[in-house]
Amino acid sequence: MLSEVSVLPYIFRRILQFIPTFLLATLLAFFIVQLAPGDFLSQLKENPSVRPETVERLRKEFGLDQPIIVQYFYWLKNFVMGNLGQSFQYKRPVNEVLPGPFMNSLILVIIGTVLHFAVSIPVGVYSAVRPYSTADKTFTFLSYIFLGIPSFFFALLVIWGMLKLQQNFGWDMPLGNKTSSKLPTDISWWRSAWDVFIHALAPTIILVLRGISSESRFIRGQLLEVLGQDYVRTARAKGVAENQVVYKHALRTALIPTIAGLGGLLPALIGGAGFIEVVFNWPGLTPLQLTALGNQDIYILQAVTAVATLLYLVGNLLSDVLLSVIDPRIRYH
């Protein structure tokens, strides 16, 4: 389906366009964080548990006595080189503190993305091909409910349900945290991977339910609209079989906005996972960010925001590239 116009220059252009946005976003976050009350250099100096050599090193690396805008460029330079600053709470470089929670959130996000498309596309297609059937009406009803329930409340309900199940039936439920506390520490890697997966399942499902609800209804609407288009009528008039009409002619066009939404999906999942991580005690980015907020640990706050923004931009880039592959009309602009 690719014509002679290659996708690479388009990717390059989009990356160039994203750089200023990234800079501005991280600058904004930096400013906001810095505007919070308290002067870090003096706080550091007054803090007895921080060694003077550390204070001096930080002052040099991050220009802590310089005006804010200069500090930003110090931070930027360090960020690009992989130095994310020092955490005041944990007294370790942010580079060491960040990866754990980041990967944990990423687990939820990746499983969530897969689930999101794996469920909403079939449900949406089925509802469009059999509109107003019992199944379709049930899906619509469920969508309303899932869209109306806040994720943290639903998470609480699910945990309560699991508690009841555990009490009444003795089933072993993965209640919160990333791993079971009951497992011995020297088990095989795939057993512990499975354990993590089981624990990730409930939070992930709750995470994506809202997205699946709205996406499947959206796909249904899009597909119904495309199926009413003239070129679909032309395909039928040519003698194309109905399932070919749906999957080859209609679905590709109908899914275009869904693919476009992929860019927003990643950051939405990361942000949305926040509440669920709190309820389930899942050690992800949001609990990290919340404790950083409580302790004014600015470099963690800044790093998490920067990383999340980066992911958003990457997601957008991904969806733009996918879009240009699928919809040839975009490439020519």
Partner: peptide
């Protein structure tokens, strides 16, 4: 565009940090 580039929850937390807890 810049405001929407930062995921909502993190932006909320960051903005809240502007004011004393």
């Amino acid at each position: 565009e810049v405001l929407s580039a930062i995921p909502e929850l993190f932006l909320l937390i960051t903005l809240r940090a502007l004011f004393p807890l």
